[in-house]
Design a protein around this nucleic acid. Structure first.
Lengths: 241, 241
DNA sequence: CTTGGTAAAACTGTCGACAGTCGGCAATCG
DNA sequence: CGATTGCCGACTGTCGACAGTTTTACCAAG
């Protein structure tokens, strides 16, 4: 519990309770105020947040669709716990999406896209030099989000956004130390160079390398992370048809 | 408005009201008993189905996450209307996922996988020979789902499942005529052959061809399908950050 | 000390109700 | 006659409550 990260905007207080609750839960999960596998009680949360159960329920459903929570019928919601295999899967899917995106992007690499990406890398480098780990991650994700955006497939972008929540979870949950600012900078500049070259092969190589580094960086920290596999028969829940 | 399809009552009283409502809505949308862009009233639906608004709301949120509905704050839920661009995007993402899947599958093509896929192709051929268009589509999707499954990445499979709902929408919404049984059969056998050969290039070529055919088959029927773009500023909703 | 069963407590799924808000319509004004 | 403004109805967002089920606590027997 404890206080939710940043206080909600001074904007308008009473609008979109669901989204406010969702943000609160997201932050609480990522900052590990809720432990992986922990059960969340609807009534407890609604009491703590001072709202009724309805918005809490909807927010929980939202987080479930984003892969941060898991619901078991009649049991409630549990914080998603990722094991090593699931972690690999997440990064493999990321690779899948970004490979496709950079390929599409290379085909239609406009000056606008180039400018936006370059600028975002600068922002990222600036963030990497600072101490705010969260901001560094966000700016990094934003760079990749821009790549997906300029690739020109909105559905692809949505798939990435869906995945990005789990990605955030993986990264913040496991990463203890941070990449060196230099590494981050050069790693992203390589992507820009590959795009400038216009060569699909170079792009693919660059993105493979880039994501490989990120994956290794996260995976190496997975000793005993959290185990979500207990009672399931390991096959049936995968193919319920 | 207009009353929904079949008489509402007669099928409730089991558990999982939410899922039942979701299934009902899904079928109604796919079978075009609700027209694209049409607004769905929560109270209307809850009256028709004989349940309260809570499960209707949750089901609608579920369908929203699956891309079948769109919610506008304070306005309610609307049936998703796909324009030509969104249609292209869906098939492009499908290509992205299946390319990756078949690549992974080729690396670990077990006898089990081979057997299961062959069997499913047979089931599909059988279905293609019949008259049930829905079953043909389902068996086709199931074949591809099996491919994704045996590729060994559950997260990838989930991404495909998410997409498959929209895929179903695209296919059933637009396709007037059906592919010839022969075409379906040979098209899938080519995939099996490519997998048997173990060549990544052959696999990629096969899946590109396969999905290209399916896409062309659907896209060619898109004259005036449904236009979802009206009041949005076309840029802001894509990059809200 | 362990084990098995029963009862209480807590929780989820579902329901009906209320208030604020949005869109449409009509009356009014220029 | 057209545009503007105020009103009305409908609907969503949110709330508190109830019933059935699951979990936990407790007690007794081995």
């Amino acid at each position: 519990m404890a206080s939710p990260t940043a206080a909600p905007r001074a904007f308008i207080q009473q609008q979109n309770l669901v989204e406010q609750v969702a943000d609160y839960l997201t932050q609480a999960i990522i900052q590990q105020h809720f432990l992986p596998g922990e059960r969340l009680s609807e009534v407890q949360l609604s009491r703590d947040l001072g709202v009724s159960r309805a918005p809490v329920r909807e927010a929980a459903r939202l987080l479930e669709s984003r892969g941060l929570l898991i619901s078991k019928p009649r049991r409630g919601f549990f914080v998603r716990a990722l094991n090593a295999v699931e972690l690999e899967d997440v990064f493999d899917l990321r690779l899948c999406l970004e490979r496709h995106a950079i390929e599409r992007l290379a085909e239609r690499y406009t000056a606008d896209a180039q400018r936006a990406l370059k600028q975002q890398v600068e922002v990222l480098c600036e963030a990497a030099a600072g101490n705010d780990g969260t901001r560094r991650i966000e700016e990094d994700l934003q760079f990749h989000r821009l790549m997906l955006h300029y690739a020109g497939n909105e559905r692809l972008l949505r798939a990435f956004d869906d995945l990005s929540h789990e990605l955030r979870l993986c990264i913040t949950l496991i990463t203890k130390t941070h990449e060196a600012p230099d590494t981050i900078a050069t790693s992203h500049f390589k992507l820009l160079d590959a795009l400038d070259s216009g060569s699909p092969d170079a792009c693919r190589e660059a993105i493979d390398y880039h994501i490989g580094v990120a994956r290794d960086f996260v995976v190496k920290g997975v000793g005993e992370t959290g185990d979500s596999s207990d009672e399931d028969s390991a096959d049936e829940d995968v193919l319920p048809r």
